[in-house]
Structure formats: C-alpha cells, structure tokens
Amino acid sequence: MSTVAIDKRTLRQDTWWLEPMLVVLGLGCFAIYSTWAALQNGNYYAAPYLSPFYSPCLAINCEHVSVPLFGSWYNWSPAILILWIPGGFRLTCYYYRKAYYRSFFWSPPACAVRDAASGYSGETRFPFILQNIHRYFFWASLPILAFLWWDAIIAFNFGGSFGLGLGTLVLITNAALLSLYSFSCHSCRHLCGGGLNSFKAAPGRYKTWGIVTKLNEKHMQIAWTSLVWVGLTDVYVRLLAHGVIQDLRFI
C-alpha cells in the first residue's frame, strides 16, 4: 500500500517559510560580520576594552595580550586561535543544529513541509556524526568564559584607577549572556544530572539539574540574545578603536 497521493510539497497555508528565512538572514549576517571582524587583525582593543572576538588574545603581537602562548612568528589574526571554540560550540549546539538544518539544509524547512534533498542519513555519518562532540566544546568554552569575565573585570580599570564606562557594562552583559548560553546548554544539563536515574540519591546534582533545566527551556532565546550581543560588543569596541565614537563614562 502506498501513502496518500498528494503531490504538493506541503498543504500548509500559513507563512511557514518566514522562520527559516529570518534564520538565514540572522545567522548569515552574523557569519559574514564575524568572519570579517576576525580577519581584521586590528582595532579590537580600546583600553580597557578587549573585543570578545579576540579574547583571550594568545599571541605576543596582540594589541592586548591575555596569555602569550604564541610567539612573534605568529602574525595572523589572533582571533583565529580561539574563535573555533565558541564557533564549534555554537555549530554543534542542539538549538543551532535545529535552526540551520531547517533553514539552510531544508531538512525539513518547516514541519510537514517536504525535505529538499531526496536522500537522508541524519547524524549517523560523517560529517554530521561529529555533532556528538558538542560536550567537548562545552568544556573548552569554560576557560574562554573565564577570560571574558576577566576582561569584564579589568574593564573597570582605567589606567590604574577604578571607573565605569558604557563599555564596561557592555562587556559584563556579554560575559553574563555567554555564561547563560553555555550553562543552559543541553550537554551541560546532561552532565549536571541528566545521566542519573535516581535524583533522590543525589540532591545536590538534582538541584543543579533543576536550575539548568529551567535555563535550558530558554536556550533558544539565550542563544540569539548572546549571539547578537557578542557581535554588538565587537562593534562597540571596534568603533571606539577607530575613534568613531567616544566611550560614555559614568565614573
């Protein structure tokens, strides 16, 4: 027996194409901007603010060195040294997977709308089987977060004296949003307690799991907010560095 002979891609009458279109637009813009910004190799530091695209800055020739791991032989953009971590984290993130499988791969473009490709093997084969290393990116993103918080703290240090600029607030918000993003991740939820079958025996992990679960419910919203914010943070620092705008100082 065969299935019903309806030869339309979908019978949906609503604007199902709107969401994938917006995602393509949003992710596309970010990808283009972040690649451009990462390749600039300049104007990413406006004291005391370091752009998160370049933090931690690991080469000796950085505008603001976080840890001098790479010698002066390294003269490409230092962003390349670290951006693969947050990039990989987002690329393998369960939410972003949904977003780009739907909008870029049309697999499927929306619910009850036919896939674009005729064959399909999901995440069972290379390259998509690599999505399974998501939790390693989670681990790797933790030191990055530490540096971003460090950047936010030294953003109070205006040449040795305590201060507070708009940039300070921007950096703090950035570190907070990226932390929320990391800790609301599905892998984190699993590592906190998702692997347990009895919570009664592990009340501490149950509590942590409960908090992460609450955060996880908002993972998509946090993903977008933090993505936009990290981009804006770079824009802000870049404009300061270019001298296009002046930092607003509160203290």
Partner: peptide, 23 residues
C-alpha cells in the same frame, strides 16, 4: 536509529500532550 534524528523538533511542535519530546 537515534542518530537519524536531526533534532528539528517538529515532533515537539505537534505533540497534543505537550511532551517536550526533543528536549
């Protein structure tokens, strides 16, 4: 065949019992 699932969440969207199938 769990690996076939690419977590595009349509199952969750249509569930009349509002089970968060994917998450």
């Amino acid at each position: 065949g769990l690996g076939f699932c690419n977590i595009t969440k349509c199952c969750t969207e249509v569930c009349p019992e509002h089970i968060k199938i994917t998450d």
